[in-house]
Design a protein around this nucleic acid. Structure first.
Length: 932
DNA sequence: GACATCACG
DNA sequence: GACGTACGTGATGTCC
């Protein structure tokens, strides 16, 4: 089999050390259960390796593979320059024991593990890459390290395993502004603070690329340094020549590094199942052990459950999750036994199986109950007999209870106040039951519990929770339903198969509930869960089922009008371009504008394509007609495809209304998200767009009423940061942006101009978002220095704001989360990261308590709303972050507005008494456009 | 399925 | 000293 290495071969070189560092910082800390050994980076490493083993069957699979590590200690570069990598902090304590483990992992998967004293991993990679290239093969370097980018080209490319992104010549040019062959020249000039490569002082990558492109290469540049026009740059290059030349030596990889293991010996080998299993079991990677066993076709090793520590002593001994042990309930007696158990215990986990994901259209197929871990059943109700022919028959499968009889038995249990019903995503099941006339209360919801506990750490779907907290990967629904065109609905799944999948979900839900319930208290989020999560679910369910009436004809007419206008614009655009092309393709638009027409300002994005967002085109509109036409076309295209066309599809055939679905756990900050369709981003900012709201109408005899909080986030900021002047302005009911402008620019209120007010408004928003000079400059289209000046002055005039921001970031760094006024925790796992992540995390941490508190307030109002409008002819239909929309009988409008406004304005009470008033504006009309 | 773009607060 | 940057979402079309 082994014929050496040559043409047609594909070598994968994995940069092991770099990967471990990145995995360590990117992944949550994970420890081995039995002894607390930190193994997060090892887990990330194994997952990556496993993915590669899995992909080894693919067409682009490697024929040869090796993992390369840095040899601990110094390399030959330290002999050239003693400060090389001298300012590297020592590896984190939790990472150190993981280094040898990753080498073991490599060997366990039967992959060559390479390192060499006196050399860095990068040098070994360079040497292998050179040999492979010379032999006519292809090379993929699994790394995102910029120091390796000099190797790209001529059959060598890189692959960023964490971002799942390939790095070719284009991406290198993107990063360095020069081709791979000149990368070392740029690096020599720019230096590298991380590795302590000095470079030329004051010159970064941008300037370096500029110089290299002008002079061809580093040597010519240094020889001709006298010719450089800018005096400072010229002097820098002349003065630091030796240092620059040394830097080049430091960044140049040694592709002559001696290789102990010849290229041929790196041939891909199948892992030895026994060795791999043993290692994974030792690490206690439960899920991975099963997956690897699956791929290798062996039995997974059983991993012993660790001894209970004192902390876990209360946790009961649980039977393993075993899909074959679940009961299929086919008659009333069997069902009654489970109902009796639910009565006896006072709780039961429930899950429904249906024909689809849309709760307003899906039909119930079966119900699962779980009364204790491992003791779960599935009650099939409307499975079809699929065996007859290709399409299946519509005959009910045999051995199922009569659906009406089963529901009649379940009904009193679901409504029994003494029995707690536990769901994962209760709103879905509650709506399915509600459409069948069954009320469900009281409910607990493991998804909402996870959200209260862990917002910002991970998502809250069953798969994630089960893997994370039960170390168990649930049966994927795909294995039952298939995918794509050939996918079937759950009622076509044979009952025997359905039992395992369905009952397992109820079992998992109950186990999660047992874990989360005590944690709510320990983590002090019981109030958040009980006051702001649990009671919101039925309110949202009711709103979603109400839906909002949407007039199809209005939308349809608008679609036609948009289509006509678009066709006209498209013809004009093609005329201007002198050729036809796809206006909807940003790539083609970029080509036409920046290549063919050679307009200025073309910037290429990550994928090497020209970037053509609206603000760029707006700037170009002064140069040429085409950008303006393209912008018009884009606006119409958006309105048509996302709104006037798509919304028609969402009108429910029976209710004639559009029913959105709110995701209660959708935003980390506590905001809701709206999907299928999203009714929280219906256009309003442009005239054409706003007309779409005319299609959102009230039933005859009713009106649409809208109430929204005025400046709620700025009011919260004034309160939490304790800014007296801001509070005062709000108490006096002033125009807050004008007031800010007056304070900042020393302009009296009665002399305020719209322009000055506009700038202050942008600053006010910027503050809420964790302002930066760059961001404000871009938003206001002013020079960066000027924007920074505004910010400095703002902080000077409102000193409490800066203090609040610093305190918030410090709190996040210490605790790993920030908190709203109402106790909601938003975790910030990236806050202590290095690199560009840190900036994002910082701004998110500053924003979260403000956005989150506003979200808490409107949630509190919504929860109180059903009782508040009881008896009024009013229905709450939609929430758009700071706005609530109602449909109200004409004669009930005034009292409804009065009561709703009262609830909204006092929603923070009694938990929090704000130092500023909350103010709610109201509007009404035949449609949403008029009401807003 | 990733990316670019754009709709909202 | 340079880097990359406003916060939070979801839907659509293109392109691989």
């Amino acid at each position: 089999m082994s014929e050496g290495f040559g043409k047609g071969c594909h070598l994968h070189l994995i940069d092991g050390s770099a990967f471990i560092f990145r995995a360590f910082h990117a992944l949550p800390p994970l420890t081995r259960k039995s002894d607390g050994l930190p193994i997060g980076a090892v887990a990330g490493f194994c997952n990556m390796i496993f993915k590669m083993v899995e992909d080894n069957k693919g067409p682009d699979a490697p024929t040869h593979v090796a993992v390369i590590f840095d040899y601990s200690g110094k390399s030959f570069r330290n002999d050239m320059y003693d400060k090389y990598k001298a300012n590297r902090p020592p590896a984190p304590e939790d990472l150190v024991p993981q280094f040898p483990l990753t080498r073991e992992a490599t060997k366990a998967f039967n992959i060559a593990c390479i390192e060499r004293e006196g050399y860095e991993a990068d040098d070994i990679i360079a040497a292998y890459a050179r040999e492979a290239r010379e032999a006519g093969g292809r090379v993929t370097i699994i790394s995102s390290d910029k120091d390796l980018m000099q190797l790209v080209g001529g059959g060598v490319e890189m692959f960023d395993a964490m971002k799942n992104k390939r790095i070719g010549v284009e991406q290198v040019e993107e990063k360095f502004g020069v081709g791979p062959d000149r990368v070392i020249d740029v690096q020599a000039l720019a230096g590298d603070s991380v590795d302590n490569v000095p470079g030329a002082p004051g010159i970064g990558v941008k300037t370096a690329a500029l110089l290299i492109n002008e002079y061809g290469d580093l040597e010519s540049l240094l020889d001709r340094a006298e010719e450089i026009k800018q005096p400072k740059r010229r002097q820098t290059l002349i003065d630091n020549r030796a240092q620059i030349e040394l830097s080049k030596k430091l960044v140049t990889l040694d592709d002559q590094t001696p290789l102990d293991v010849p290229l041929e010996a790196l041939e891909v080998k199948d892992p030895d199942a026994e060795v791999a299993m043993k290692f994974l079991a030792e690490m206690e990677f439960r899920t991975l052990t099963k997956r690897v066993a699956d791929i290798l076709g062996v039995e997974p090793l059983v991993i012993a459950e660790p001894e209970k520590t004192a902390d876990q002593a209360e946790a009961p001994e649980l039977p393993p999750i075993d899909a074959d042990k679940y009961e299929c309930v086919r008659d009333a007696a069997a069902l009654q036994r489970y109902i009796d158990q639910a009565h006896k215990r006072g709780y039961v986990a429930v899950d429904t199986e249906t024909t689809g994901l849309d709760e307003m259209r899906a039909d119930l197929v079966g119900v699962c109950l779980c009364v204790e871990p491992g003791d779960a059943c599935y009650v099939p109700l409307t499975h079809k007999d699929g065996s007859d022919d290709l399409f299946g028959s519509d005959q009910l499968a045999e051995g199922q209870m009569d659906a009406d009889q089963a529901l009649a038995m379940l009904k009193p249990m679901l409504a029994d106040p003494a029995i707690l019903k536990i769901f994962q995503n209760a709103k879905y099941d509650a709506k399915i039951f509600a459409r069948l006339g069954l009320d469900v209360a009281p409910c607990d919801d493991t998804m909402l519990m996870s959200y209260a506990l862990n917002a910002g750490i991970h998502n809250h779907g069953m798969d994630v929770l089960s893997e994370r907290y039960l170390s168990h990967a649930p049966i994927p629904i795909k294995t039952l339903l298939g995918t794509g065109k050939s996918a079937i609905t759950f009622d076509r799944v044979p009952v025997d198969e359905a039992v395992k999948y369905a009952a397992e979900d109820a079992d998992i839900t109950l186990r999660l509930w047992q874990i989360f319930k005590p944690q709510l208290h320990r983590k002090q989020v019981t109030t958040v869960y009980e006051v702001m999560e649990r009671p919101l679910m039925p309110v949202l369910a009711k709103m979603e089922m109400s839906g909002i009436k949407v007039d199809r004809d209005t939308l349809s007419r608008m679609s036609n009008a948009f289509a006509q206008k678009m066709a006209g614009l498209e013809a004009e655009i093609h005329e201007l371009a002198g050729e036809t092309f796809n206006v909807g393709s940003p790539a083609q638009v970029g080509e036409i504008l920046f290549e063919k027409m050679a307009l200025p300002g073309g910037k290429k994005g990550k994928t090497g394509k020209y970037s053509t967002p609206a603000d760029v085109l707006e700037d170009l509109a002064t140069e040429h007609d085409m950008p303006a036409r393209i912008l018009d076309w884009r606006q119409l295209s958006k309105l048509k495809s996302t709104y006037t066309d798509a919304l028609q599809e969402h009108i429910h055939p029976e209710t004639g209304r559009v029913h959105t679905s709110y995701v209660q756990t959708g935003a980390n900050t506590g905001r809701l998200a709206s999907t299928d369709p999203n009714l929280q981003n219906i256009p309003v900012r442009t005239e054409d767009g706003r007309r779409i709201r005319e299609a959102f109408v009230a039933e005859p005899g009713n009106v649409i009423v809208s109430l929204d909080y005025s400046q709620i986030e700025l009011r919260i900021l004034a309160h939490v940061a304790g800014i007296d002047s801001l509070k005062q302005a709000f108490r006096e009911g002033q125009d807050i942006h004008a007031s800010t402008a007056s304070e900042m620019f020393d302009v009296p209120l009665d002399e305020m101009t719209p322009e000055i007010r506009r700038q202050a408004k942008a600053i006010n928003f910027g503050v809420i978002y964790g302002i930066s000079g760059f961001g404000l400059a871009r938003n206001l289209r002013i020079p960066r220095a000027e924007a920074q000046g505004f910010i400095d002055r703002y902080f000077e005039r409102f000193p409490g704001i800066k203090e609040y921001m610093d305190d918030t970031v410090a709190f996040a760094k210490e605790h790993g989360y920030v908190q709203t006024l109402f106790g909601r925790k938003i975790h910030t796992p990236e806050i202590n990261a290095k690199g560009p992540h840190a900036g994002f995390a910082k701004r998110a941490a500053i924003n979260a308590p403000i956005q989150g508190a506003a979200a808490d307030i409107i949630r509190r109002a919504m929860i109180r709303m059903p009782a508040a409008i009881e008896g009024l002819p009013a229905k709450m239909l939609l929430q758009v972050h700071d706005e609530l929309l109602f449909e109200v009988a004409e004669d009930g409008v005034e009292p409804t507005i009065a009561r709703v406004r009262d609830i909204m304005e006092s929603a923070a009470h009694p938990a929090v008494h704000l130092d500023v008033p909350l103010v709610v504006d109201a509007g009404q009309g035949d449609n949403w456009a008029q009401a807003h």
